[in-house]
Simulated assay, not measured.
Amino acid sequence: MSDAERPGILPCQSIDALISQGAIISQSPFDHDQVQPASLDLRLGSRVWRVRASFLPGRHTVRDRIAEVAMHELDLEKGAVLEKGCVYIAELQESLALPPGVAARANPKSSTGRVDVFVRLLTDRGNAFDDVEEGYHGPTFIEIAPQTFSVLVRRGTRLNQLRLKRGRPEHLRTESVGVDLSNGIAGFRARRHAPVVDLDHVDGHDPRQYWEPLIPQNGQLLLDPGEFYILASKEAVEIPVLEAAEMTPIDPSVGEFRVHYAGFFDPGFGTDEAHGKGSRGVLEVRSHETPFILEDGQTVARLVYEPLTNRPTRLYGDLGSHYQRQGLKLSKHFKAWNG
C-alpha cells in the first residue's frame, strides 16, 4: 500500500505539501515553526467577538451565526483581554480547501489547556466541534472560553492545532494513564483571583501569583468541586516515531472529574531518539459537582495511538520544545517553580 493510500495521520512533510498545493491557505506567511511533526498550529486573526452563547453552525456559516449572538467586537491587532467566564469566537488566519479523502481534527495546544482556556474549532455548516469533514472548503474559527484566568491574546497567538488525516485504521492501540501522587509537590491548584496571563509571554509570569502547590497525604489528593489542577502521569509517556497519540478521558460514567483538555502528542515525544526519554504526561484536571479523592496510580485518562501514513521528517522537539523531558510542569508562560 502506498503512502497516499495508507490510512492514518499525515506527517509534517505531507502538511507542507498541502500548503504548497493550496489546500491550506493563510492570510499571512506561515511561521517557520508552525508545522509540527504531525500537526499544524493555527493562529488568531484580527477580530474576535464576545458572544452571549456558544453554538454549532449547523446549516449556517459561522459568520451568520456570529451576527445573531455577538455582543461586541474586539480588535486583536493591538491585543485584547478575554475575560474568564465569557465566551468568544475569533477568526483564524488559516482556511482550508482539503482534497477528497482528507479530513482533520483540532485540539487545544498544551499551553492552552494548562492555563484552563477551553477552545474548540468551528467550520461553516459544521455539526461538531473540532472535527473537519473530508474535502472541507472554507474558513476556520475558534471558540475561546477562559475558565480560570483572564488572558491577553493578539493576532497570531496560537491556541489550537490541527491534525490532518486520511481514512481511519481498523484498530487503534490504547494505554491507560495513572496519576502520580507519590511524594513531594505532586500538583498545583489554580488561584481564583490571579492577574491576567499574557499568552505570548514565555517565562514571564510568577507562578506563585497563579498557583498553589499541593502535597498529597498518604498518596491521596482531595479534589474540590469547580477547582482546576495540574498533575502528572505516573508512567513515562513515549510516542513512537511512526505514531501520534491523543489523550482522552476515561469512561464518562466516572463523572466526578474531567482530565485533559489538550490531548495531542506528536511522534517522538518522550523517546530516546528525540532526547525525551522519561517524559511524563501533564494532566489538566477539573473536578465537577462533588469532592473526589484521587489515589496514587489511579487511572485517570487513556492514550489512543494512531499510525502515521509515513515517518515524519521532524520529530517532537526538533524545532524546540518546552515540554520534552518534562515532569510535573506548568505551562510555558510561567517561570520555574522555586517556592
Rank of each mutant, 00 (worst) to 15 (best):
A262L: 01
E243T: 15
F265Y: 01
P267S: 05
A244I: 10
A245D: 02
T248H: 06
A244S: 15
A245F: 10
A245T: 03
F269L: 15
G268S: 04
E243P: 14
G263H: 02
G255L: 07
A244P: 12
F265C: 00
E256P: 08
E243C: 15
H260R: 10
D251A: 10
F264A: 00
G268N: 02
E243R: 08
V259F: 08
G268A: 02
F264D: 00
Y261R: 08
R258L: 11
F264C: 00
D266P: 12
F257L: 10
F269S: 11
G270W: 05
I250S: 03
I250T: 09
I250W: 04
S253T: 13
G268I: 02
S253V: 11
R258G: 11
P249Q: 07
S253D: 10
M247D: 11
G268T: 03
E256Y: 13
V254K: 00
E273Q: 06
I250V: 15
A244K: 05
G270S: 10
G255A: 09
V254N: 11
A244F: 10
P267V: 13
M247C: 15
E273M: 04
G270Q: 12
E273H: 06
A245H: 09
Y261A: 10
R258N: 11
P249H: 08
P249G: 09
S253W: 03
G255C: 09
G263T: 09
F257I: 10
M247I: 12
M247G: 06
S253Q: 05
P267H: 06
D272M: 04
